[in-house]
Design a protein around this nucleic acid. Structure first.
Length: 288
DNA sequence: CTCTTAACCTGGACGC
DNA sequence: TGCGTCCAGGTTAAGA
């Protein structure tokens, strides 16, 4: 499920429902996630207010006075808010219990069948003013694509001398964060750039369009509640509707919406290829 | 340093 | 019904 739009939608919904509430307790399934559960920290957080909920890269950040509880949804993770009485189901791995100002209890449940997700504690004092992305991992150090400094000139400058395929370069998180398999495919299609083209061979002008498409597509996806492929839901239970807007992702064999639209018979069908063990969907005529 | 590959997990879809 | 294969939104340690 989770690329930038899905994580952002998750963070926004959590903020609406539990920001300002007091953390009162937690329960774990005992199953190991990508990182060991920060049990000690969770104990010390009991009784503390949740100051804010934010996002950096693909991490949901729950801020407390001493630092941030950073959640990653991995490949199949999702959060849901529910009443304490609602029982846990298979693959519910962490239940965070909150109590609002009015004394109303709300639980946040992390559900993740594949267990590629994680919870990490980022200590405010150890961070020492650095970008929190540097403490989260290699995939979180790049620039936020929806920030004001992100543009084609930045991508152009960073890409010089890079021989890796543009799609893998976009997805690795070291230059720009949050762009995963779905949105990399979609942005490259909208920009007319072939996914296998070497990053260093792309012109400044084409990067200007790519940066613009990335921002437009991510923004629209957030507004649509993200993309639900099979099992993503926002914490309020709503699925994402952006999958309906996918032009190429998951559409192998369908007519290309640009060159083989309803009008003509001369266009191509969407193809699938594998790059870095991930499926890439593209149009061989529209993307060069 | 750059780039590629294998591994971490579970479950659903499909072919025989 | 069952069994084998392939596929899935991500990340990163290890290898070349």
């Amino acid at each position: 499920m989770p690329e930038l739009p899905e994580v952002e939608v998750t963070a926004q919904s959590l903020r609406d429902q539990i920001a300002g509430a007091t953390f009162v307790g937690w329960k774990s399934s005992g199953k190991r996630l990508r990182h060991p559960m920060p049990r000690q920290v969770l104990e010390t957080l009991k009784g503390q207010p949740l100051l804010a909920v934010g996002r950096r890269a693909k991490y949901v950040l729950m801020e407390f006075s001493g630092g941030w509880l950073a959640a990653h949804l991995g490949m199949s993770g999702a959060m849901r808010c529910c009443a304490p009485a609602e029982p846990s189901v298979l693959h519910d791995h962490l239940r965070l219990q909150f109590c609002s100002g009015e004394g109303l209890p709300v639980d946040v449940v992390f559900h993740d069948p594949r267990r590629f997700g994680s919870f990490q504690w980022i200590d405010r004092t150890k961070l020492n003013g650095r970008d929190i992305g540097t403490a989260l991992g290699e995939s979180a150090v790049g620039m936020e694509p929806l920030g004001t400094e992100f543009n084609g000139d930045y991508l152009f400058a960073e890409s010089r001398g890079r021989n890796v395929a543009i799609k893998q370069w976009l997805m690795n998180g070291q230059v720009v964060v949050g762009v995963g398999n779905i949105y990399a495919c979609e942005a490259l299609f909208s920009s007319g750039i072939h996914p296998a083209r070497k990053a260093g061979s792309i012109s400044r002008q084409r990067f200007a369009q790519l940066a613009q498409e990335i921002q437009t597509i991510l923004s629209q996806a957030i507004r649509a509640g993200g993309s639900t492929i099979s099992d993503f839901y926002a914490p309020d239970g709503r699925p994402g509707r952006y999958g309906q807007s996918h032009q190429v992702y998951g559409r192998e064999g369908e007519p290309c919406p640009r060159c083989d639209g309803a009008s003509g018979a001369t266009g191509a069908t969407i193809r699938r290829m594998v790059q870095g063990q991930r499926s890439t969907f593209y149009c061989r005529l529209c993307q060069r």
